[in-house]
Design a binder for these strands. Structure first.
Lengths: 189, 189
DNA sequence: ATTTTGACTAAATGAACATTTTGGTCATTT
DNA sequence: AAATGACCAAAATGTTCATTTAGTCAAAAT
């Protein structure tokens, strides 16, 4: 890949995570990347496409990390748990995702809202794949994979994000226990 | 209770559900209630308190309806299910809650946001009571009642509200099945 | 020839100001 | 004693205008 393209992505990612999407200007990005503004537009057709590209690579990165957390020797329950934990730890600790989620909450920039929705959709699709694999292997009983992935994801959001709004945060240990107790018991055979 | 007070509440409830909280003026309410504007302030110290009063009575109404849905001869699982179903059916069909939830989504009026949050909290508290009762009676095994009520409520929101944003709505029948399959299996003894 | 650039433009933004609306009060009426 | 609506301060809304910014393109650099 072109060296300039890399510089642009790096500069934009840095600026987005520092100031947010809306507050980042293309002049800013050009300056940080040591590139003329026009050059950006030879690689990306708009500011929005630049954001999409960056979020796409975040999605890949999260999937890669979740994959690493999975250990074929462990059960499906263990693994789906570990994968979700990685996904949400990333979300909680990654500068850029933090900033972008803040921006959606505080000013609701439409482009950012859309792109974070896609991130959620892709995470659900990832979990869905794992569920389908486990079903094929007969590790879990048959179920609607999309619906199950959706519920697992929503439950993790509830435990990791929503609960903290009005209570003491739950430890990852506790979340794992609850997830197991409430969601997995019904699924395992 | 004073006749005028009743007229005011009725007029305000009607106007809120017709035009929303923000778009309703106190002059409007006074006119609809056939009352001088000053009279409103002998019963309510602000527009916000008027809203709070109305939402409080909605909360009572929902609890009453949920109570009616509960049948002591049925199991805890059946009953918590039926109660939650009533709560969400109300939420979906009651003009005023629909309008207020729209207003929070579309313009985020702070007073309305706060009051709808309270409604959610009170519904969780209601479910929590039912869980504590069942625990006392030994109908279900011991658990953190607040956390369990919270998860049940979040799961119902996921199934009733969030799922429909990107998929075909689920029937109440299907929701009941899923709730049973995923959440209750792990709780029953 | 191809890539890179930054001055340029049309549109968006927001600061500053004028105008209107509205929540809440209170002297007066009933 | 209860009810009212004219009144007021403050907030919301509309308007204007200068500034900013996403995106373009003719020219410069390679």
């Amino acid at each position: 890949m072109s060296e300039k393209r890399k510089q642009i992505i790096e500069a934009a990612a840095k600026s987005f995570s520092l100031f947010g999407y809306k507050a980042t200007t293309m002049d800013q990005v050009a300056k940080m990347a040591n590139v003329g503004k026009g050059t950006i537009y030879t690689f990306f057709k708009s500011k929005e496409e630049l954001l999409e590209e960056i979020v796409s690579s975040i999605i890949s990165e999260i999937k890669r990390e979740a994959d690493v957390a999975i250990d074929q020797r462990l059960s499906f329950n263990e693994n789906v748990q570990r994968a979700l934990q990685r996904i949400f730890t990333f979300r909680k600790e990654h500068e850029l995702t933090i900033k972008l989620l803040q921006e959606v909450r505080d000013i609701g920039t439409p482009a950012v809202r859309d792109v974070m929705k896609r991130l959620d959709r892709e995470m659900i699709a990832y979990v869905r794949e794992k569920i389908e694999e486990a079903m094929t292997k007969g590790e879990i009983r048959s179920c609607d994979a999309e619906l199950t992935a959706f519920l697992m994801f929503k439950m993790y959001i509830a435990l990791n994000v929503d609960w903290e709004k009005e209570h003491e945060p739950l430890s990852q240990q506790k979340i794992a226990e609850l997830f197991h107790l409430y969601l997995l018991k019904g699924l395992s055979r």
